[in-house]
Simulated scan of single mutants.
Amino acid sequence: MVQKLLSNPGVAKLALNLWPPFWGSGIKIKRLSKDFTHCEVALRFSWWNKNANRSQFGGSMFAMTDPIYPLMLMAILGSRYHIWDKSAHIDFIKPGMGKLYARFHIEERFVREVRMATEAGEKFNPKMVCEVVDEQGEVVARIERTLYIRLKRRFRPAQVEAA
């Protein structure tokens, strides 16, 4: 089901924009490239995502970056892989006021690195960094996510399963 949604960027963008955790938080996919290598996400500023200091709620900033890298990689690499967030860390740089944006990019050399690191069936845990910026382009938060990437069991070489 997920792979079917990820086979068409327009459908994936629509599905994510209607997904309750995004829709309810004011998170919107603004752009998603046809090859899934570029994505831009926006977070609107409203009363339901303000914190006690009247700035953007940090959890909303964190949520706007949550599934993006894994979903982009699932679309690029296909259904042979398990891909998800293993851990994450957010560094708040300054209060987020107004609409916020996050841009994601996956380079072809990184895709090659993933394939090489996992071809023997091993786990690969790359760190991906994304910055959340305000409307002036100033960094509000920096999020580092460690991904878990591994070939699904049925696609792993036999010697890995024996170990």
Rank of each mutant, 00 (worst) to 15 (best):
D35T: 09
P95V: 12
E144R: 11
A52R: 14
F22E: 08
F45P: 02
P9C: 09
R112D: 13
R145D: 07
A52H: 15
E138S: 13
I106W: 00
S87Q: 14
M116N: 12
L71F: 09
L14W: 12
P70T: 06
G26D: 00
E144A: 14
R109F: 07
R142H: 06
R80D: 14
R153E: 15
W23G: 08
A75E: 01
G137A: 10
R142Q: 15
I83T: 04
N8M: 12
D91Q: 15
S55L: 02
A102T: 08
K30L: 14
L71G: 07
Q159D: 12
G98I: 02
L71A: 10
Y101E: 00
F110C: 00
R54N: 12
F36K: 00
F57I: 05
H89V: 14
P67R: 00
G58R: 01
L147P: 00
A141Y: 02
Q3P: 11
K4I: 15
M61Y: 07
G78K: 02
H105V: 08
E40M: 11
L71R: 02
F155S: 10
W47T: 11
R156F: 04
G78L: 03
N8R: 08
R44N: 15
L6W: 01
F110A: 02
V11N: 12
P157C: 05
Y69W: 12
G10P: 05
E144Y: 08
V133M: 08
G137W: 07
A15W: 09
W19E: 07
W19Q: 08
L100C: 13
V133D: 10
L6D: 05
V111D: 03
L32P: 07
S25I: 04
L18F: 10
G59Q: 09
E119W: 04
S55E: 05
I143W: 05
L147D: 05
L151I: 01
A52G: 11
K50R: 15
G24Y: 02
S33F: 12
L71T: 03
P157W: 00
R44V: 13
H105F: 14
N8G: 11
F45K: 03
G121T: 07
E138V: 08
T65N: 02
W84R: 01
Y81E: 00
K86I: 01
V160L: 11
A163Q: 11
L147Y: 06
S87N: 15
A15Y: 06
I29S: 00
V114N: 00
I149L: 09
S25K: 00
W19S: 07
A141N: 05
A75F: 06
E40W: 07
R80T: 08
K34Q: 14
K50V: 04
S25E: 05
R31N: 14
A158G: 04
A63E: 07
V41E: 01
R112Q: 14
